[in-house]
Design a binder for these strands. Structure first.
Lengths: 203, 203, 203, 203
DNA sequence: AATGAATGAGGGTTCATTCAT
DNA sequence: CATGAATGAACCCTCATTCAT
């Protein structure tokens, strides 16, 4: 009953995300998208007059889907629900939650990040609409810690960058079983959070 | 006088790397490469019978160029030349050196990493020829620190992953001036190394 | 009003046969075919993904068109309708009928025979699907004559080969007015049939 | 010692004939010819400025090689040396001799006949220089027979055509073992000659 | 004379886009 | 609205031909 009510536009977007993530934008034909979406090739162009427009549609979709998860519930939930937890537990919960979100929307994120490299308009949208709120929240998190004297005096954006880099790496590690052997996804994330936290914390 | 003695094959490879890094493999035409290399389009196919073969040529080039830098001089230089330095100074030197190498070969690395996503054979080569030696060296560095009791008991590969992620992020930061404002490349790298080191070190 | 209802596929096949017969497969461009068929070049590839496939399409067409003419009506008609005629009249009718069929489909046959030389798959199809039935019928005709004591004891396949060679030559003679001067198509065919018949007949 | 003294031009011609006969003129690259002739590709163009010129070279070669065999020795030899033989023996010897010549120069003849279809200048040369003498000789042979009252009153050119067609078919039969089973090359030729002779002879 | 690297026009083929149904 | 046949520009690639060595 989920598929039945999916609009034609959504079917197209979904198919496009999936194939773009596998073959890249330029490596994907509109025919392939039509087949995966189970519609006629011509139908795509009723919704997205140019193939390019599909990328914009995807980015809009990405913002729609991820914005609430990242901005809305995410932060409040973690910090409020865990107000009685230690810093370590909070950071780990925070990073695990991020990892979760990224992994759930992996193909979507992959497409956006990959194509942003080559499409200046996508890039611009990404740097103006997508990145700032995410960065803002994490920056804020670290700034609070610094202000409250629990974290050392680093530039918050650097800590944000490191956390993003760390979470990013841990995502990539999930896709490369040989890199770290013998540890579960959770354990990896925890050890990484530990290193970060120890490096950041005042004592 | 530099260009005069460059072989036709090298001219092609160089042009291909440059344009692939800007537009991606599938977004680049052999015509564009020919124009940039200032040769006839047909000449490309004397050296690389299929466009695909250009990617292999690039990967081979990448291995040729970077292998000595990463494996050879890099490690010995830093650790031997700095044997009287503190851990902090060594790690910073190490990471800065890495950053330098990555930045000097940024377009080349960008192409390889991007296309490895879509070309299984490139991916395989990368995971079998390129990644292992790099990972081995860094793993070794951290294992030594752990063995000598200076670093805590983390899984070395996790520390490697974090360092790579950190260096990777710092490269990206160079290309996004808005992310961290007010700090130089050096300062960013140093703060990051500091966080890592503090997180890792025993005391 | 004839052309209007011709399918795009048939238009392509027809144009291809015509140009292939004039310039050979390798001497013909898909562009030329498209122009002659009055369609866009790209359209050809909706029906025949590879240029090669055009040859198969033509061979299939050839079998479709000629099989009924050769196997079906041809034999029955001649032998049944002429049961009261002399051997000479039957053979002449038979050969004339064959000549007619070959001449009507001259370009088609020319293409198949020419390209069979260079395309093993076409060759195989020809020797397995096209030749056997034709040879079978003619062999049968001569075998009957031999069995009934009207023809001498030659190997039937040799007589078939001679008849085919003779009809083939007479086709070529139509295209070379200088070879036999002063005789009509009918007279040539009749004299040839006469020679054959006299050579074959018992008395 | 045969190859050593072969001129570069002859090496090219020989290689060209061989490959043209296998792949056709348009299906053959000058590179392939160069490789088979064991020379550099550029060398071909010193002798034959255009690829087309190779065909003329081949035709000239064909005339050079075959003219003496067909016109000169051939006829005299057979008729003089066999003056005490029966008509049947003479005709068989004649046809066998022709068959021999054709088979020895099969690739050469194949190329000329095939390409004459598509190259008007080759065609013209063939119909003006090659065909007439051959036709003339055979016509003469049959005319003599008719004049001397041994052969019936057919148009000589028709008999020539049939003989050529018959010899031609027998050549093709050599390349198709399945057509006539159980008979040797000699037996086939003899039976064919028998049919022709019986058909032609007066009693 | 011979070489073979370089050329570039042109070939087969792909694919985003249009449009009549 | 949806379809899919048709389009043709542009792509990758081939190959006859040129020319510096």
């Amino acid at each position: 009953m989920d598929k039945k009510i999916e609009s034609t536009e959504d079917k197209i977007i979904r198919a496009a995300i999936e194939i773009f993530s596998q073959k890249g934008y330029n490596g994907t034909t509109t025919k392939e998208i039509a087949v995966k979406a189970k519609i006629a090739e011509g139908t795509i162009f009723r919704y997205f007059p140019k193939k390019q427009d599909l990328l914009h549609g995807i980015l809009v979709k990405a913002i729609e889907i991820m914005a609430p998860k990242i901005i809305g519930k995410g932060v409040a939930e973690i910090f409020d629900d865990n107000s009685d937890k230690s810093d370590r537990e909070i950071l780990i919960a925070f990073m695990k939650n991020r990892l979760e979100i990224v992994q759930q929307n992996f193909t979507l994120i992959k497409v956006v990040l990959n194509e942003a490299q080559y499409h200046p308009d996508i890039q611009e949208l990404f740097f103006q609409k997508v990145l700032p709120p995410i960065k803002g929240i994490i920056d804020h998190f670290f700034m609070e810690g610094i202000k409250k004297g629990r974290f050392r005096q680093y530039h918050p954006s650097i800590l944000t960058a490191m956390m993003v880099g760390t979470v990013g790496m841990s995502v990539l590690l999930q896709h490369n079983r040989h890199f770290v052997e013998g540890l579960s996804k959770e354990e990896i994330m925890e050890q990484m959070a530990d290193v970060l936290l120890t490096g950041i914390s005042k004592n």
